[in-house]
Design a binder for these strands. Structure first.
Lengths: 198, 198
DNA sequence: TTAATTAATGAGCAATTGCTCATTGTCAAT
DNA sequence: ATTGACAATGAGCAATTGCTCATTAATTAA
């Protein structure tokens, strides 16, 4: 008894938002242009989102969830902290390789001071799940016995750097380089040396 | 035989630009607001800079030079790659602590695909000086024998992450955390272990 | 004084922004 | 057919943008 939605508008909007943000930046992005890119009218965007801020934050959260899910799925069939963390790390980098725009959106929006960010419970939840995986590694002696956040910083930073480079198309990064970086990072955070070559 | 400039306008413009960019982002920044923040009129900005793009890029380059100089100065009186690289690393983090806005501007502008960036000779020069320092470490056996760019990525990424956190005021980072992070990173890139505790 | 030269101003223009809302399209039930 | 309900449209508004340029301020040389 109503006009049905044609196509998958939310998905179109998300795709257009990611494309536009990764093209012009998260702050100078324009709703009018997102609508044009999605092949929709502005009004339609405002049927699905209350404001520009809400639109950006909602797409940001979707992407965050996807990245988190990719990491957790990769870890799912691995046994033990070493294999799980390695799988999560490569999943993170891989996500950046396959969806550079998604990654750039997250990066750009994280570089801003947004009230919505600090204090968001779901965001905290995702973060603590990752820290939990690291904690297991510390507990069983796989990882060096230090602050989990410290370890997380050392692990995540190069992964983010790598993914960002791909997102910017600045340079091509081959699998060997990714492997080399993980090797160095793992040397740093692993408690003992497991098959290292000077 | 002409009206003299009063005050240091270029410096006022730089400060206002850094503040405005770190407040609203590099793409949505407005020349009108920079002028207002600097206590100048728009026209004056355009006496010193040809366009908005040129203004942003010129301030970006100034900051880049400052950061580079801080690293090189810190390394100047150190002997040997280990001490020099350590000094450079802490100088980089320290810069981010003391001038968060500067750091945020560099970060935000580097996250964009700007034609001016790739192909800029001065930028390449700064980068190659840093890589040269690392190369010395590889040559004399201090650092692990792998690609210098790989080592640079592993070293720089957490430093950038740290500085960004400070820039965003997201959390307070004490000296111990900085030291802990450097310890882990150095474990990763150093050829042998020098006084490490599991 | 007067002329020449440069510094600095800020009203204002064309273009673009986020967002609204009157209108039209499309379905199910009557 | 007609009606009620929702989906989707896009012209248009008030505000803001990057930038211009006619004007004024401040100085020295003649």
């Amino acid at each position: 008894m109503a006009r049905p939605t044609t196509g998958d508008k939310p998905q179109d909007i998300r795709r257009a938002t990611v494309d536009e943000v990764s093209a012009v930046g998260s702050t100078s992005v324009s709703v009018n242009k997102i609508a044009a890119r999605a092949g929709l009218s502005v009004g339609t965007i405002y049927r699905y989102h209350r404001s520009k801020d809400e639109l950006l934050f909602s797409v940001f959260m979707e992407v965050k969830r996807d990245i988190h899910a990719a990491m957790m799925t990769a870890a799912a069939d691995r046994q033990g902290p070493a294999a799980r963390i390695r799988a999560m790390w490569f999943a993170l980098v891989d996500y950046g390789f396959q969806a550079p725009g998604d990654f750039q959106l997250v990066e750009l929006m994280s570089s801003e001071t947004r009230v919505q960010f600090s204090g968001n419970e779901e965001l905290k939840q995702l973060q603590s799940e990752v820290l939990g995986e690291i904690q297991k590694g510390v507990d069983d002696g796989t990882l060096v016995n230090t602050n989990v956040r410290t370890i997380e910083t050392v692990l995540a930073s190069p992964a983010i750097t790598l993914a960002r480079r791909v997102a910017m198309g600045r340079q091509v990064i081959d699998d060997d380089e990714v492997e080399r970086i993980f090797t160095l990072v793992w040397r740093g955070v692993a408690a003992d040396r497991q098959g290292l070559s000077g």
